[in-house]
């Protein structure tokens, strides 16, 4: 009897959880901080520095959203999540949004009841091999031993790729990227496979990076993007259009350097609407008219953020590739601000 009462109370609480999570924006404003789920550490994407300040490409999205909603890029509580805890943290309301190298897939979007608001990095799975093996294409990897992180989409992609190409492989299951580096360097596997951005970051740490080659084949699509819960479309809109504002700012040439100048008014009405000097876009989703200005001022536009955290001048050294604006041969294409 007692137990059923407790279970009943818990169930009721659970329903209350579903019902009460409607207005995330109000919660965030009342709290004064944005709870943003990030990775516990992915080079270039999310890492704390020695004084505990989080920085990185994913972290920049959190800060932009905090700036857009609260006007303060430091009003963010970063909640480190692992691959296992990230979805529960978001579903339970512990975090308001997740910006954590999460691949947008059908089942995560539909079955887990999340809403991917866009893509901030188009990644794909690649292979790294020592040059001394003389392999120049992933098609030549028949019979190779492969270091592979367990429990990720990369494991499934690998199996699919080798099956489609009629090849066999021997998996060496590993848990973390650090372990993978050690195993690969120790020669426990011929090939290391993970997202291409991760391969680049890993290779950059080797004593002689040029001894290792990243093969040209990219065997999967890994669109990584921020996500929010189902059931609060207004909040989803805010995160989506903050990301779009960063991308659009690059397209229109709005940078952290010239934004103050542009606030004085420009000839381009699209820029004016984006920066809130014309129209009432901010008002439509309950924010100040200069929400995008705050977001862009934090770390600049998408291109600036990219260059600072993972671009070619950083140790990670990623080229823009697919992540260039559509005019420059990439697939970044922000819908119009109108």
């Amino acid at each position: 009897m007692k137990r059923t009462v407790i279970l009943g109370a818990l169930t009721a609480a659970g329903f209350a959880a579903g019902a009460a999570s409607a207005a995330t924006l109000d919660d965030v404003k009342a709290r004064g901080t944005l709870n943003c789920g990030v990775a516990t550490g992915v080079p270039g994407f999310a890492a704390p520095d020695s004084s505990g300040e989080w920085a990185g490409f994913d972290v920049a999205v959190c800060r932009a959203v905090a700036a857009a909603t609260l006007g303060d890029p430091s009003a963010v509580e970063f909640v480190p999540t692992t691959g296992k805890t990230r979805f529960t943290a978001l579903a339970s309301g512990e975090v308001d949004m997740l910006a954590r190298n999460t691949t947008w897939t059908f089942s995560r979007d539909v079955d887990l009841k999340f809403e991917f608001v866009g893509v901030n990095y188009y990644d794909g799975q690649g292979f790294m091999v020592p040059k001394e093996l003389g392999v120049s294409s992933a098609k030549e990897l028949d019979g190779a031993t492969v270091c592979i992180q367990t429990g990720t989409t990369t494991e499934l992609n690998l199996a699919d790729y080798f099956r489609v190409n009629g090849m066999s492989y021997e998996p060496v299951p590993i848990e973390t990227n650090a372990e993978a580096q050690q195993q690969y360097l120790a020669g426990a596997c011929d090939v290391y496979t993970t997202d291409a951005s991760g391969l680049a970051a890993t290779r950059a740490t080797f004593e002689v990076p040029t001894d290792h080659a990243i093969l040209p084949e990219i065997i999967s699509k890994e669109p990584l993007g921020p996500l929010v819960r189902h059931g609060d479309n207004e909040w989803g809109d805010i995160v989506r259009w903050t990301l779009n504002a960063l991308i659009a700012a690059e397209e229109y040439g709005v940078t952290s350097a010239n934004i103050d100048e542009m606030l004085g008014g420009t000839d381009n009405p699209e820029i004016n609407r984006l920066l809130g000097t014309e129209g009432n876009l901010g008002e439509m989703f309950g924010l100040e008219s200069d929400w995008a200005v705050h977001a862009i001022k934090v770390g600049g536009n998408y291109g600036e953020i990219f260059a600072r955290h993972i671009g070619e001048d950083t140790p990670i050294g990623l080229a823009r590739g697919l992540n260039a604006q559509y005019r420059d041969g990439g697939i970044l294409y922000a819908p119009p601000f109108r």
Binding site: A39, T40, G41, G44, A47, P48, D49, Q182, F206, P315
Partner: peptide, 14 residues
């Protein structure tokens, strides 16, 4: 230790 390794300066220190 994992977070520290995510700093590009220390990636690879185990």
């Amino acid at each position: 230790s994992n977070s520290i390794r995510a700093d590009t300066a220390w990636n690879g220190v185990v």
